[in-house]
């Protein structure tokens, strides 16, 4: 399995999209640093630490929750269509590498990329924060970023089911990803009006609620008290997202197998 994962990364060599993914990890931290610098001089916040907390929350909120589903969606389209586009499926099956092995590998790669993307964003934020503000709790923030990356990736897998199901071009996949992110953002802005069950069944809003609770617990966020009744524990979040990921993986495997046999 490790060999297949290694090969999956090898296949991505010279893919320009990867560079864009890396660059997109800087998309939110860099402009937000400029805003943070301005806030420092305007006197809106009591301390530099408070400014960074706010800034970190923005990066995780927009940079990860909004951008990562799009990145994962497009990345998944690239991974899952790669064999179809290059005609290498027959070579892999003749080895033999089974459909299930391929699907599990590709999903593992997505999880690794999700975690790395999130970690990179957090690292850039911390670096920018160290320059302009005051950063505390670095180990926690890095762990939090990895958890966020994994949770968001798991929450994006239902979207990947659709990407594989429609098996269309990349533009279609991008459109679906954007739609998914926007839908999640709308749900997040309506937390108070939505029933708890619905909030918990939507993977990205669920991750947002968990993130708010976790940051509050560690003293890096104030103001989640209004939504306290909605906040899930880490175990609850992990369980719901694991179930989502498992069902999505089974569906992706079924469809991928069907496509390969056609």
């Amino acid at each position: 399995m490790l060999n297949i994962i290694k090969c999956e990364f090898g296949k991505l060599k010279r893919r320009k999209f990867l560079l864009l993914v890396v660059l997109s990890a800087f998309l939110f931290p860099v402009p937000l640093t400029v805003l943070m610098t301005r806030s420092l001089t305007s006197g809106e916040y009591d301390s530099k630490a408070e400014i960074f907390n706010e800034y970190f929350q923005f990066v995780m909120g927009y940079g990860i929750e909004l951008l990562l589903p799009c990145v994962i969606g497009v990345f998944a389209a690239m991974l899952f269509f790669m064999e179809r586009d290059s005609g290498t499926s027959k070579n892999l099956r003749a080895i033999p590498v089974t459909s299930t092995q391929m699907v599990l590998t590709k999903i593992t790669v997505l999880f690794i990329c999700g975690a790395v993307f999130s970690l990179t964003s957090a690292l850039v934020s911390i670096l920018c924060g160290e320059i302009t503000a005051q950063v505390s709790g670095i180990p926690y923030r890095l762990l939090f970023a990895v958890e966020m990356g994994i949770f968001i990736t798991a929450g994006t897998l239902p979207l990947i089911v659709l990407v594989v199901f429609f098996s269309r071009n990349y533009v279609f996949s991008v459109l679906m990803c954007v739609f998914y992110s926007v839908l999640s953002t709308i749900a997040e802005s309506s937390f108070g009006a939505l029933p708890k069950l619905l909030c918990w069944l939507m993977p990205i809003p669920l991750t947002t609620l968990w993130a708010a609770g976790d940051l509050t617990d560690h003293g890096f966020l104030n103001g989640a008290s209004a939504l306290e009744y909605l906040i899930p524990s880490t175990a609850q979040t992990a369980a719901i997202l694991a179930a989502t990921a498992l069902i999505s993986t089974i569906l992706i495997d079924y469809m991928y197998k069907k496509r390969r046999n056609e």
Partner: peptide, 23 residues
């Protein structure tokens, strides 16, 4: 079988290495 299927963004050596690793 049918047309040769390889990853277009890789060289011949890189392509064969992938399949050698998988084997």
């Amino acid at each position: 079988i049918e047309a040769p299927g390889f990853y277009p963004n890789l060289t011949a050596t890189e392509n064969l290495r992938i399949f050698a690793t998988l084997r």
